Amino acid sequence: MVSGEREPGLRERKKARTRAELRHAAVALALEHGPSAVTVPEICAAAGVSPRTFFNYFDSKEEPLFAWDSWLSREATARLARRPADEDTLTALRNAMQETLPGVGTSGDWPARRKLLTTHPELVGRLAQNLHHMEDLLAGALAERLSVPPSSLYPQLAAGAAVSALRASFVAWDPDTGQSGLAALLDRSFDLFTAGLLDGGGQGTGRRNRREPEKISDGDVEIP
């Protein structure tokens, strides 16, 4: 938890626990029976809640399968907006995402979610939409931070790179390494793209062509 943030109260912790139980039940049932065959009452029975409670948290039976993505998008964007104004853009993005990671859920949820997406590729389109939405939110927050239009090149590019770094970190992550392992991969991802993505991540012996970075202008903001 970031210094200065209050601990969640009992009601908030109970709501988070219920949401996690619904998410876990939805993923487990979708793996067992296939996403299209699972019903809301079945998810509720597995989680021990009523359908009315379910719809207090989610609008459809598919939403729990992507609850992480929606939460990550909102939380990372909110934390980016709270980063110090004198922090450079990429550092602010890195720190906002690192602050968000502890809330993504227990490591035991992720192998099941990864297996579900692999087994049912029809779900990948929804995941891609969620990632694109996250890029849009981050680009908007960056544009406001830099006082440029959201469609400007730099916010779009920086947001896309940050989301790609997050996605690559999750793909490479071994959940057995816990949150610290995921955080280390995210740091490494940011290090790699800020260094210009050297061949092999700077670990191989391939030929590298490097130039000194040129300064470009994005609106009224000079971007190194």
Rank of each mutant, 00 (worst) to 15 (best):
P149W: 08
R145T: 02
Y154A: 12
S107A: 11
D199I: 07
L185H: 09
D136P: 01
G181Y: 09
A159F: 05
A139H: 01
G105A: 12
E144Y: 00
A141E: 14
E75F: 03
E135K: 15
S36K: 03
T205I: 11
R52P: 06
L72E: 09
L117R: 06
S169E: 03
T119G: 04
D218G: 14
T89R: 04
S189R: 14
D176M: 14
R82D: 02
E122A: 13
T53D: 04
W110M: 07
M97F: 13
V2Y: 10
P155Q: 10
T18H: 10
S73F: 00
L197S: 02
W68T: 14
P121Y: 10
G181D: 11
R208G: 07
R19K: 14
R79K: 13
A184T: 04
Y154H: 15
Q129S: 03
F170L: 05
D174M: 00
Q98P: 00
G140C: 08
Q203C: 08
A37N: 04
A46R: 14
S73K: 01
A16S: 10
G4M: 07
R13M: 11
F54P: 11
L117G: 04
G103V: 01
D199F: 06
W173G: 11
M97I: 13
A183N: 15
N209A: 03
A139S: 10
A45E: 14
G204M: 10
T39S: 15
R82C: 00
P121C: 08
L198W: 02
S151P: 02
F55R: 09
E87G: 03
L157E: 06
S169C: 02
P121N: 12
G202C: 06
K115R: 14
P41M: 05
N130A: 11
P175C: 14
T106Q: 14
F170T: 11
S189H: 11
L10T: 15
R74N: 01
R6C: 09
A26Y: 07
A168Y: 08
G48E: 03
A184I: 00
V171Q: 09
G48D: 01
T177H: 06
G105I: 07
E99C: 00
P149I: 10
H24M: 14
S70V: 15
T194A: 04
L142K: 12
F190P: 07
G125Q: 02
F58D: 05
I223E: 03
R114M: 05
W173V: 06
R167L: 03
A76F: 07
R82H: 01
Q98T: 05
A195Q: 12
I43Y: 04
S180L: 07
P84S: 13
N209G: 01
A92P: 04
G181P: 13
G160A: 07
A184E: 08
V2S: 12
E135L: 10
S151R: 13
A183M: 13
G125P: 00
G201V: 04
E62W: 13
R82V: 00
L157W: 06
L146D: 01
S164N: 12
S73R: 03
F193S: 09
T89F: 04
V163L: 11
S147T: 15
K15C: 02
F58S: 05
